[in-house]
Design a binder for these strands. Sequence first.
RNA 1: GGCGCAUUCGUCUAGUGGCCUAGGACACCGCCCUCUCACGGCGGCGGCACGGGUUCGAAUCCCGUAUGCGCCUCCA
Length: 420
Amino acid sequence: MPPVVRMAPSPTGFLHIGGVHTALFNWLFARHEGGEFRLRIENTDTSREVDEATQHIEESLRWLGLTWDGPVTFQLDRMERCEQEARRLVDEGKAYEDEGAIRIRMPDEGTTGWDDLIRGRVEVANETIEDLVAIRADGRPTYNFASPVEDWLDGITHVLRGDDHISNTPKQIRILEAFGAPVPQYGHLANILGPDGKKLSKRHGAVGVDEFRAEGYIPEAIVNYLALLGWSYDDKTEIMTVPELIERFTLERVGASPAVFDYAKLEHFNGVHLRMLPPDEYAERLVTYLREQGYDWNEQLIRAAVPLVQEKISRLGEFPQFAGFLFRDVQPDPALLDGGAPMLAAAREELERVEPFTADRIEVALRAAADRLGLKPRQAFQPIRVAVTGSKVSPGLFESIELLGRETALERLNAAAGPS
RNA sequence: GGCGCAUUCGUCUAGUGGCCUAGGACACCGCCCUCUCACGGCGGCGGCACGGGUUCGAAUCCCGUAUGCGCCUCCA
């Protein structure tokens, strides 16, 4: 029987990277097993802007490629059903009214346990579990009641969630048993921590999917990196495509200890996946990204710049800084041009007559000029780079000059040499 | 405080009693490549939390201690 799993976020706002991690493990499991991955919004707290947040969450999941099966369901829509079920338990003597609320009776002796998919056997003494409120005095179900009711209604077979839910599990198992409903298998994933060992949060830096997107991370890299937090394929393989992850993901290889989120490693993965993209696909992503970020730069030029940057940057967000000189004027720091005047003059002469104006011809011409001046390439090209790109760091010089065009390149060389 | 979970290089991890003089990756350092940056290549630094057992043999099994985290809400 194919498994049915779910992601059940509460619509408080943006999608947290920790939530993505949990969602991803559910999704990979479902896809690997040929099962279903459901999206359920736990919106019992009606006071917040549920609609907007829900759309936001859906949008983030879609962007990441974590597609869900069937319609999105809402806890709110099941309030009545929850109350009905609670009443039924009252009638059966398994629950009772208490100051307007309904409480479920929990056994006082013995233990409640389950074989955790990730941690093995977990047992909890029943005396430590108190009768829990199922329906609040105002009629709304509590999370610990609504959640198992919905798991039951949705036919959830495997519950993979954060380990902060471990102490909820015995309660939920008892509720399901009271209904006579099937009890799903539970697996508790370790949380993702910040560098200080505390649960990853805002103060550690970016945590929202939006933020990673805005910085120019791509879904493939985020998914690949996150998959490796608490799961591994073997002792060597790290870089994997989504299809490979789906094929290889198994619960047996999921670990139980918490992992610290390492931004540096994510960035490395992002660079690798960016370099793996076919150039035209890279161009699509880059153009889309720059549009999202509000740049109105010429699309043809952006596409033409792809070969110059794909090997060089590890986040799309580096593009404006790295290749912005192609789209806007530059203001070189005069100090960086110091001593470069002879080479600048020589470069100007060469670039005036190079034909055709292509990177390889430009390179030949400039190297010859450097040679005549007795300059090493390193010394010769740096002032030109600064004059033309405005920076000490840039894409390949000759390719950059070609893209810039003869006219602009000469203007910049003139401007750099001019005043002095 | 009670209950629960966790514990291999700075970080992510491989490892399920001998294959481990503990492997890989990121980060860091050095060298090479090189028009800068990056990529790539080579090398280096660096770890089984501690203490008891069990065993011919333990990173691997058991017990204890320590540390960290989580829950103990009519929050989710």
